[in-house]
């Protein structure tokens, strides 16, 4: 650990247009810097190669939460603290609020941002499985203009994103369509606070008379990026919740996840616990469940 950092260049553009112009003039040179809750740790450990940063924290265009009948749109610099205290997010998007409350600790939640969490693209990021099951959309902006993309296909590999080097994430839009779904999430880590997850789940389901009418599942820390498990969802749709369904779901999930061994856990543990988390969700919402998992 270094007490003092090596020198680098940091720009603090006055507005979004100025930030986008910097990116357009030298694509790939500038690394955007939001709350810095992860980047600062890497920077201080001497593990961050970039020598040129653009601070986005203060840009007013990237702030604020706006609401329509159909959706809620979060500025990319919305902090975890702001997420947790927003009444509509609390009511309709509890998985995002729970994830925000698990991230670091209060002082980190005051600095960390949803846009930063997405662009940092950690497979272990707490809020990203929730954004996947809510089928979020991202507004990407550059000096050339703006476009909306689906978040489902945004993470294309480890720290790889479907985003050009001159683009920034401006906003995250959540469709207000899942209010009536059953919602569930859980994080497994070494401690509740300040710990990066070993495995985490975000799940939404429509279940009536013990039958799964629709389901959305996403996991963290089990693949190169946060993962929406569409194959496991397909296996579960229209099925009654019983031991056989849960067994099939575990098999499908095991085939879909590609966890690794690292300093926090092992692939074997992650696979086992991911299956347990899914079984716990299904069992908790099914009837006549007697599995001896």
């Amino acid at each position: 650990m270094r007490a003092y950092l090596p020198a680098y260049d940091l720009q603090t553009p006055a507005n979004l247009a100025e930030a986008l112009r910097l990116l357009a003039d030298a694509p790939g040179v500038w690394k955007p810097f939001a709350g810095g809750t992860d980047l600062m740790v890497l920077l201080e450990a001497g593990k961050l190669a970039h020598k040129q940063f653009i601070s986005l924290w203060h840009l007013p265009e990237l702030r604020g939460i706006s609401i329509t009948d159909d959706s809620i749109t979060l500025g990319a610099m919305t902090t975890y603290s702001q997420v947790q205290t927003h009444p509509i997010l609390q009511r309709e998007f509890p998985l995002l609020c729970q994830a925000a409350s698990w991230t670091g600790s209060v002082a980190i939640q005051n600095r960390g941002t949803i846009g930063g969490n997405i662009a940092n693209a950690s497979p272990a990021a707490d809020s990203l499985p929730a954004l996947l099951v809510y089928e979020a959309e991202l507004e990407l902006v550059s000096a050339r203009g703006a476009r909306w993309v689906s978040y489902q296909s945004f993470h294309t590999g480890y720290k790889q994103m479907a985003m050009r080097s001159d683009e920034l994430i401006k906003a995250i839009r959540l469709p207000r369509t899942t209010n009536q779904w059953i919602q569930h999430s859980r994080k497994v880590g070494t401690r509740k606070a300040q710990a990066i997850s070993k495995v985490c789940i975000a799940a939404l389901a429509k279940i009536e008379n013990n039958t799964i009418h629709d389901i959305r599942l996403a996991f963290g820390s089990v693949a190169p990026g946060p993962l929406r498990c569409v194959q496991t969802e397909a296996v579960l749709k229209s099925r009654a919740i019983d031991d056989a369904t849960i067994k099939d779901a575990r098999s499908a999930l095991a085939a879909e996840l590609t966890p690794i061994d690292d300093i926090r856990s092992t692939a074997e543990y992650r696979l086992r616990v991911a299956g347990n988390l899914l079984a716990e969700f299904l069992a908790g919402n099914g009837i006549d469940f007697h599995s001896d998992r």
Partner: peptide
């Protein structure tokens, strides 16, 4: 590394870990 909290101060009234906030921010 943002873990221990010894450096906690208030920035515009909110607690932050000042070891991982840049002075320019």
């Amino acid at each position: 590394t943002s873990i221990c909290g010894a450096c906690t101060v208030h920035l515009n009234g909110r607690a932050v870990k000042s070891c991982t906030v840049l002075a320019v921010q």
